[in-house]
Amino acid sequence: MEKEREEEEFYQRLEQRGISRRKFMKYCTALTATMGLSAAYVPKVAEVFAAPKQRPPVIWLHFAECTGCSEAVLRTIYPYVDEFVLEIISLEYHETIMAAAGQQAEEQLHMALKKYDGKFICVVEGAVATKFDGGYGKVGGNTFLQIAKNVCSKAAAVICIGTCASFGGIQAAKPNPGGYKGIGDALGMKTVNISGCPPNPNNFVGTVMNYLLLGKLPELDELGRPLFAYGQTVHDQCPRRSHFENDEFVEQFGSKEAQMGYCLYKMGCRGPETYNNCPIVKFNDGTSWPIEAGHPCIGCSEPDFWDKMTPFYEEL
């Protein structure tokens, strides 16, 4: 009875915010499909959203990065970020959006670590410096490396959001003056890697939901990336693929061929070497993605893409 009442209240809340029950279930269905789960899980996905008693705690660390991954999560529509933060998870520490600062922020981190030891999800955004005792990157006098070791070792699961935390990212590009590395590499541990610069927030939310729903992390490829999102190349899912097969290529931006939406392979597209679901999920509420906007894929979800995928505008 209690549960039914809570559910009813939940749907009322959604209605008040202009989201119909039908629309919500449609979203849950889409999310379930994105995660590669059968339709039987749809009601369970809905249940996770319907306000759990104790929201699962999340500690979000920022190291060497641009905060673009946080910004990407800020753009989620289903659920809107206020629901994600206020009603689905308990975001215990996140330097950009938390109200506390300085000493109080540090205290908050330590309190959360103590309260939720072994029970929280640690999300890491950014790479850690390893050269010079990790001296090239610090928060409050502690090196990223020290913080990462301390916090990640206490987490129930570590999710790296973005290419920097996953594989090192731009600061790890040659000559890598600070000896930057991704978290798994720096700490010698297994992490879930939601790579991309930034990744699609749907893939991040999908991974978290998978964890909340099934109590385990999704299946991963050998680079730690969830197969539901990174199982196929961009090329294999590209709506312009038939132009590739027919030898119809763009050779200059703005040209007739570009206007026809021909294949961008000769413009340097890295789609054939890049594993991601951009063509299917697209960005910002399914609005667009780089190839749709006429720009070749730059391979941003692959390790060392700054070194290995450049120069971006030269054919593979």
């Binding site: 931006f253 703005g254 570009a258 667009s288």
Partner: peptide, 29 residues
């Protein structure tokens, strides 16, 4: 989250728009 969709409409996505290049923009379509 809606405002920023202006970026996706002509610039592929946000953050990190990907429709600009030296010489102009790529989003002719």
């Amino acid at each position: 989250a809606r405002t920023v969709r202006m970026h996706a409409l002509l610039g592929a996505k946000n953050p990190h728009l990907q429709a600009m290049t030296v010489g102009g923009v790529t989003c002719v379509r």
